[in-house]
Amino acid sequence: MVREDGKRNFALRESDGDESSVFSGNTPRQAALKAARRLDPAASEDAADRTELRLREKGTDKVHIYDGWAWHESAPDDKPDWMPDEITEANVSKQGIEHLDE
Rank of each mutant, 00 (worst) to 15 (best):
15 S>G: 02
83 M>S: 12
30 Q>W: 03
58 K>L: 15
32 A>I: 07
41 P>C: 00
92 V>A: 11
85 D>I: 01
81 D>G: 01
77 D>N: 05
31 A>K: 09
90 A>Q: 08
94 K>M: 13
24 S>Y: 10
95 Q>T: 02
95 Q>N: 14
28 P>T: 06
38 R>V: 00
43 A>Y: 00
44 S>P: 00
29 R>G: 04
19 E>R: 14
87 I>C: 06
25 G>V: 09
80 P>K: 07
8 R>C: 09
31 A>H: 12
21 S>V: 13
56 R>V: 08
60 T>L: 04
66 Y>G: 07
88 T>N: 04
42 A>E: 01
35 A>G: 05
22 V>A: 11
17 G>W: 09
55 L>Q: 10
63 V>T: 02
87 I>M: 12
65 I>C: 10
84 P>V: 13
67 D>T: 03
74 S>M: 10
71 W>C: 03
8 R>P: 00
42 A>K: 02
82 W>Q: 12
79 K>D: 02
64 H>S: 01
99 H>V: 12
84 P>F: 13
38 R>Y: 08
53 L>P: 06
78 D>A: 08
56 R>H: 09
73 E>V: 04
97 I>H: 00
2 V>H: 05
60 T>W: 03
4 E>M: 05
15 S>K: 10
53 L>R: 10
40 D>T: 12
95 Q>G: 03
22 V>I: 15
39 L>I: 05
80 P>Q: 07
60 T>H: 05
17 G>A: 11
102 E>M: 04
28 P>A: 15
89 E>H: 05
88 T>E: 03
98 E>T: 08
1 M>L: 10
23 F>D: 05
77 D>G: 07
38 R>D: 09
99 H>E: 12
9 N>H: 03
96 G>N: 06
101 D>C: 01
96 G>Q: 06
5 D>K: 04
16 D>G: 08
57 E>F: 04
17 G>R: 09
14 E>I: 02
40 D>F: 01
61 D>I: 04
51 T>W: 12
89 E>L: 14
4 E>W: 03
26 N>Q: 08
8 R>F: 00
70 A>R: 06
61 D>E: 13
30 Q>N: 13
52 E>I: 15
53 L>N: 13
80 P>D: 13
96 G>S: 05
45 E>C: 07
41 P>H: 00
102 E>Y: 06
72 H>K: 10
55 L>C: 11
70 A>M: 01
52 E>F: 04
52 E>S: 11
31 A>V: 05
36 A>G: 02
63 V>I: 15
54 R>D: 09
95 Q>M: 12
74 S>C: 01
11 A>S: 14
90 A>I: 07
29 R>S: 14
27 T>Q: 06
8 R>G: 10
72 H>I: 00
54 R>Q: 15
79 K>N: 02
1 M>N: 08
3 R>L: 11
63 V>A: 02
16 D>V: 09
45 E>I: 01
4 E>A: 14
89 E>I: 00
31 A>I: 06
29 R>I: 02
65 I>Q: 06
1 M>S: 13
70 A>G: 01
3 R>S: 14
62 K>R: 14
29 R>L: 02
86 E>A: 08
86 E>C: 07
35 A>P: 03
31 A>R: 10
99 H>S: 09
54 R>M: 15
92 V>E: 10
33 L>H: 05
95 Q>H: 02
96 G>D: 06
44 S>N: 03
18 D>F: 12
48 A>K: 08
89 E>P: 00
82 W>C: 07
